[in-house]
Design a binder for these strands. Sequence first.
DNA 1: CTGAAAGCGCTTACAG
DNA 2: CTGAAAGCGCTTACAG
Lengths: 351, 351
Amino acid sequence: MPTILDVAAKAGVSTATVSRVLSGSPSPVRPATRERVLEAARQLAYKPNPVARGLCGKSTNTVGVIVSDIGNPFYADVIKGIEDAGLPEGYSLFVGNTNFDLVRGESVLRSMVDHRVDGLILLFSRATDPLLALLDEHNICVSIVDRDPALTHQGAIAISVDYEPGIRAAVHRLLELGHRDFAHVTGPRNLHTTHLRREAFLQALAERGIERSRVQIVEGDYRTGGGEAAARRLFSRHLSPTAIFAANDLMAIGLAAEIKRRGMRIPEDVSILGLDGIDQASCFQPSLATVAMPRYEIGHLAMSSLVRRMRKDPRERSQALELEVRTQFVPGASIGTRRELLDASGFQAGR
Amino acid sequence: MPTILDVAAKAGVSTATVSRVLSGSPSPVRPATRERVLEAARQLAYKPNPVARGLCGKSTNTVGVIVSDIGNPFYADVIKGIEDAGLPEGYSLFVGNTNFDLVRGESVLRSMVDHRVDGLILLFSRATDPLLALLDEHNICVSIVDRDPALTHQGAIAISVDYEPGIRAAVHRLLELGHRDFAHVTGPRNLHTTHLRREAFLQALAERGIERSRVQIVEGDYRTGGGEAAARRLFSRHLSPTAIFAANDLMAIGLAAEIKRRGMRIPEDVSILGLDGIDQASCFQPSLATVAMPRYEIGHLAMSSLVRRMRKDPRERSQALELEVRTQFVPGASIGTRRELLDASGFQAGR
DNA sequence: CTGAAAGCGCTTACAG
DNA sequence: CTGAAAGCGCTTACAG
């Protein structure tokens, strides 16, 4: 592999000049010299060694991505968006998976800091103020999705998701179909996104006269297993809901599987609504109605805004940046009118 | 962040000694000195800067993982295995996604080489001899799953999958249930793993008297969309199969979805068999019968054997290492006796 | 506009 | 057994 010395020799200049041309330094270089350097670099197919750059405190062209469950196809789409925005700009990705484990999350984050990543994208993981301060110290930009407002730390890019439009539309549809008895399977209660999803749901119901206290809440874990467990708990109670909103698609899938195993039919006996819009949801039978997140867009936005910031002078990075994406209701066959309502009214179920 | 200088000062020795103690160098160090260094390092919570180590030609403690479709939950499980084997040993992961695109795969691989990864795990991606030679040049160890025998390059760790036991058991079960008309939805034909899966299937059938020429073959893409397209092609023909083996679960899921949309029932009209054993398969309705891969184990094995090799002296790394894992048939409700066979014999379908 | 030189944090022959 | 010194490949004040 050619080094900067080879390029300098070939172009007949010093390594300092080569570096200035190739690293986009602000120092002026005579156009003719610049040309010679560029030409030499091209002929040698020279690419700066990111490890060496990293050592002298410059960018390493790496970005770390930390997700809480790499088994969730939701993240796959987000990562695709991140890759597509980052690869053309020359960034490589470190990927870390916390498995919802805080300790593991912190150790993954630290190892990324050790590797001198230029930026970090935190997806539904819990960040803390001291951790963010550590990033500042190392001059690492960060982009956080569904940022917990409890964080007082400034200077991160925050990508927030507006859950309201998608959830509200879904709720209206469920009410329209005659549902009054609702349940919600949440994620772990200590996650901020869990709170947002629950509140958007309860709020939309409350606006239409269904009080929060009437909605059964069961805590899940954002995985299929949590959905299955939730179904078992919900249907061992005396009050069975007619419509269940799972805080993500994976739980909705587990929920539906367990409900069918118990001999109930979807949507004739109970309607199921998910959230995320993962591909497999549409292959499900009946196809899963869901509140879709713009997954690819979230990743692309997180990365492209991060790239812009990483390229800035560190002193200009302090101001907060808040971006927002919206959810959207995607109808599906998993929600419908209950059979007993049909029987009572003489209606015929449509597709 | 403390540097090696701080540790040296605190322990009252030179940086050379600190390095020798902390980097596991073979040079002998007096026990008392070693103790002092260790103590100083602990007190300062010193961790060597991997970027600096990388620069002087030593390990960077990074491993690259290249997958062809990060949206496939199969890889998520493999990556978990890789992480669990790598994290405790101090390795961080670069993850690259080729999207089945050879050009993208090569550029991802090159960027990992640029970042001086110590090792690389290639999953069902296509490696070429020149590429592997490039890795050798940089002293990068590599572990390849389902390695294409067309590669003449020696010195990689090869993890091969024995598809035979799982596929054979599944085929026997299908024959037992009375099936004689089979179809197979393959992956892209240029992938070696596609070839292995197809041959194991055709071979198992041939042994029981079903000739290869009688099996309909449709090419897919290892994604749900390919399964859906395959269903459309298969059922627009005059000869409809009664049992279909999809070369992975994602295609089986797409296949099943499209078949149901066409008004056919599974397994009463057609039986479906997948391969992989991803979690969602069991939530599917009917639960998907599949040929399970030891996904986590594959990742764990690939990483742990790689770690062992990376720690070795480069001169001792040349010998080839071949490891094998086995598949296993996992029964499911998606395969059963056809209704018309039932009608003819007066049998009652079991669960 | 350009170069010589120091430095980023570590490792490793080379002396002693 | 240990230290002084060179070097990994790049960047950046500092001179000129």
